[in-house]
């Protein structure tokens, strides 16, 4: 990246837009992403939310945010963003609203809303070139309802609806949808993956996105202590492991052109990431499921073999 104000962790903006006391779980990766993402976004933000864990951030009469928030419905947060964006635009255009009152409109949803029930709405908003941010906090399942599989649950993971059994020893047998590519196929100005472990990378991406008008879409891997079966304290570590094993590539696409922003020099084996999570425990105990682990490793290797260095 060319010119950036984010060089080291010392450059993380000090202003907090999110205060403590939310009802979200201890060690929630999504909460950390929202907090850091907001720092890079700056103020004058309205978050538009679809049903998911983060919906519980603001429950009457409390909100942790110093910014505005609008809970819409599970399938249609991007449409909600459309209404707010358009209303602000027309009111400003007609001189009814001081341009100083303008806001950045940011959709925040989980992976279920992003990849399943709300995909149509997101596609519509991106297609229309809506000037908005979309932050998908991806904990790879429907966390708020008790961790059932979504179409962003990875293959081999155990969830409340893909429990490993003797008939289904791998747990979830369906592949994770490639939401980055689904979004990118619309050729929006900016799409990126981010991780709470790689903070400078995240801040730079938000900084870059701020320079574009139109859809700016972020897919954040968000470790979920309760759903993944990890200690809350391991949350950031797991996000880091996902990057270091190559399971979670950090990349961006500007008008469809993909660049990897972090290429792990020597990728750790995926096993290092899988074996520390309860949702993958069935791949290791009582007997190691070499085939599934090898398949996951193969997919990661194939992905990176196509990435230009």
């Amino acid at each position: 990246m060319s010119i950036t104000k984010y060089r080291t962790l010392k450059d993380v903006p000090k202003e907090e837009f999110l205060v403590a006391g939310t009802p979200l779980c201890a060690g929630c990766g999504a909460l950390l992403v929202i907090r850091l993402f907001h720092k890079a976004l700056g103020g004058n933000v309205v978050w538009v939310n679809a049903a998911g864990c983060v919906t519980l951030m603001a429950t009457f009469p409390y909100t942790p945010l110093r910014s505005s928030w609008f809970y819409t419905a599970m399938p249609s947060a991007p449409a909600g963003a459309q209404g707010i964006r358009d209303a602000l635009d027309i009111l400003i255009k007609k001189g009814k609203l001081d341009p100083a009152e303008n806001l950045k409109v940011v959709v925040i949803t989980g992976d279920g809303a992003a990849s399943d029930i709300g995909l149509q709405s997101a596609s519509g908003a991106i297609h229309r070139g809506l000037d908005f941010f979309y932050l998908c906090v991806d904990n790879e399942a429907y966390g708020n309802t008790g961790f059932q599989a979504s179409s962003l649950s990875p293959i081999g993971s155990g969830t409340a609806t893909t429990k490993p059994t003797h008939l289904y020893p791998a747990g979830n047998v369906l592949p994770k949808k490639d939401l980055f590519e689904i979004w990118r196929s619309h050729r929006p100005p900016y799409v990126a993956t981010i991780s709470p472990s790689h903070v400078v990378d995240m801040l730079r991406k938000v900084e870059k996105a701020l320079s574009f008008k139109g859809p700016k879409l972020f897919l954040a891997l968000c470790p979920c202590p309760t759903g993944w079966g990890i200690e809350p304290s391991e949350s950031v570590q797991l996000a880091r492991l996902a990057v270091e094993t190559g399971i979670w590539p950090l990349k961006e696409a500007v008008y469809g052109e993909v660049t990897h922003t972090h290429i792990p020099s020597k990728r750790r084996p995926v096993e290092d990431y899988l074996k520390v999570q309860r949702r993958f425990a069935h791949l290791f105990k009582p007997i190691k499921n070499e085939a599934v682990i090898a398949e996951i490793q193969k997919q990661v290797d194939e992905y990176w073999s196509k990435v230009e260095r």
């Binding site: 403590a20 006391g21 939310t22 909100t63 942790p64 110093r66």
Partner: peptide
């Protein structure tokens, strides 16, 4: 809700 950032009240 007009009182922003008030989850701080929740201990």
């Amino acid at each position: 809700l007009l009182s922003m950032g008030n989850t701080i009240l929740r201990k």
